[in-house]
Design a protein around this nucleic acid. Structure first.
Length: 497
RNA sequence: GGCGCCGUACCCAAGUGGUAAGGGAGAGGUCUGCAAAACCUUAAUGCAGCGGUUCGAAUCCGCUCGGCGCCUCCA
């Protein structure tokens, strides 16, 4: 089955065909760095992370560009209001670039915690002022933009296809329904390409017009086309940016180049909190740093991928708890699987020394690993259906647990199952870490200490001193160390958070 | 007002024409000294409601009810 992607431009699932065989160029709208990242950022960037991971898994040489917005994003989309970063800098009494640096680092810290693979290029708007000015000049020359009082605006009436992404005909939009109309604009839907800056504005640059700064929409056009070409494969972002942000990007880019800007538009849905939208004005924004105090980043990632990227995701404790337990179940399987593989490998070494392979089970169980893999890939090919793909991992988990419990496992099948978990659950989805079986604490001595305690407990159990052995188990549990007695010995693991 | 989404068991969540995945919680059982983990069984004759199309609909069409989003801030 070929990969199909829901394309906002066509409102259909389109078969994915890259512009250049074997290569993909993808641009995703990055954060405006004036505050810490929240769970909405997590949903967006985890979703696109899996999309990029999957494209690479399919063998596409993928160039992933994601901007850092450090200028031009105003507190108001009617091209009025303050620059968000300047506003924050005044509040904190630090330089705007300090704000940018601080929250850019914070952003990457959070994304690293979520195991989001970093973009190949993270360009900043302030580093591409020249490229942005060049586009504005081109648009003016070709009659798509006009200057007024030192600012430059895009003339939406000159671009007949304006509205083709969001399907909003400009004529039917009530002019100034929510915001006042900027008198400098010819048409209320015109948007700023360049804004003249007041003297007090710290971040401003020279231009053919007045000293000023670029409009928010412009940076994405400039940087995406610079690194990916005038036409590229995939542009992603949050649904709320379909209009006006992405609509404006299309207008200015296609008018500047005369070519199609983007082939596939992917939009991910929003996060709600307790059924309500999450927004600054509602005061219910959950920062990732706070969320991580309660749920591990891996749980958050797993939770996000358990629903589809185009569905809204309701962030509730009950749902997070459920996801946490589910993930634990999956990781238990992988841990047990890897322990068993390790055990069998040792036996195999011994066995080969004795030239005797009788330790192998004669009637090992067949597991249709190829079938599981195909089902997983089919799910991913269908517009990155990660919830369904995760369901397949659980199906595989049950099969593996069954053969592990039956003790009829053949090492080859177990190794292949492990490899499958690694590739599909690890490399592609990023929800199965490479090392779940290593319960390392700070150092080796602690691990030895726990092993020693387990041995003491084994002696107590041998003497049927149940009160004592239970006391040891309970005591370790309180320290976050879970003891499990199995047929062929006792294992331990750290309680998952 | 314009554009759009959603309503699937107690909770989360796939499924877009062929007879309801998966996870959590619950109930019963197996294993175990007991736990834990794991496995087995059990869970909607039903997919908001009402009509319609069809041999057949959660899936398509219409209407009704309920919830939500974008067009301000926000991924």
């Amino acid at each position: 089955m070929p990969l199909k992607i829901y394309n906002t431009l066509t409102r259909r699932k389109d078969e994915f065909k890259p512009l250049v065989e074997g290569r993909v160029g993808i641009y995703v709208c990055g954060p405006t760095v004036y505050g810490h990242s929240h769970i909405g950022h997590a949903k967006s960037y985890v979703s696109f992370d899996v999309i990029v991971r999957y494209l690479r898994y399919l063998g596409y040489k993928t160039l992933y560009v994601q901007n850092i917005t450090d200028v031009g994003h105003l507190t108001d989309d009617a091209d009025e209001g303050e620059d968000k970063i300047e506003k924050q800098s005044r509040k904190d009494r630090i330089h705007p670039m300090q704000v940018v640096e601080m929250y850019t680092r914070s952003y990457f810290d959070d994304m690293d915690a979520l195991d989001v693979v970093r973009p190949d290029i993270s360009p900043r708007a302030t580093g591409h002022i020249i490229e942005q000015i060049a586009i504005v000049q081109k648009l003016i020359e070709q009659g798509f933009a006009y200057e007024k009082n030192g600012s430059v605006y895009f003339d939406v009436t000159k671009f007949k296809e304006y509205g083709k992404l969001s399907h909003r005909p400009i004529d039917e939009m009530e002019a100034g329904a929510r915001v006042g109309v900027n008198p400098e604009k010819k048409h209320p839907a015109d948007f700023a390409l360049w804004k003249k800056a007041e003297a007090s504005h710290i971040m401003q640059w020279q231009s053919p017009w007045e000293m000023g700064f670029p409009g928010w929409h412009l940076e994405c056009s400039a940087m995406s086309m610079k690194y990916l070409g005038e036409t590229f494969d995939i542009h992603g972002g949050g649904m709320e940016n379909q209009f006006p942000h992405h609509e404006c990007e299309i207008a200015q880019s296609e008018c500047a180049t005369g070519k199609q800007f983007v082939k596939y538009w992917i939009h991910n849905n929003m996060v709600t909190v307790g059924g309500q939208k999450m927004g600054k004005s509602l005061g219910n924004v959950i920062n990732l740093k706070d969320a991580f105090k309660k749920y591990s980043p891996l749980v958050v990632r797993f939770f996000i991928l358990q629903s589809h990227y185009r569905s809204t995701l309701d962030f509730t404790d009950e749902a997070l708890e459920g996801a946490s337990k589910g993930l634990e179940k999956l990781l238990n399987t992988v841990r047990n699987l890897r322990e068993e593989v390790g055990k069998l490998r040792k036996l195999e070494v011994k066995g080969s020394e004795m030239k005797d392979s009788s330790f192998k089970s004669q009637d090992s169980i067949f597991v249709d690993l190829v079938g599981f893999k195909k089902a997983f890939l089919d799910a991913m090919d269908d517009d990155f259906n990660t919830p369904q793909a995760i369901g397949i991992l659980f199906d595989l988990s049950r099969e593996v647990n069954t053969i592990l419990a039956g003790g009829k496992a053949e090492i080859k099948i177990l190794q292949e199952a492990d490899a499958l978990f690694n590739v599909l659950g690890g490399v592609v989805l990023g929800v199965i870490p490479a090392h779940v079986e290593a319960q390392s604490l700070e150092g080796a001595s602690e691990n030895d200490l726990i092993q020693f305690i387990i041995e003491l407990r084994a002696e107590a159990r041998a003497q049927k001193l149940w009160t004592m052995s239970d006391k040891i188990r309970d005591g370790l549990a309180k320290l976050g160390i879970i003891i499990e007695d199995k047929k062929d010995g006792t294992t331990w693991r750290l309680v998952s958070s």
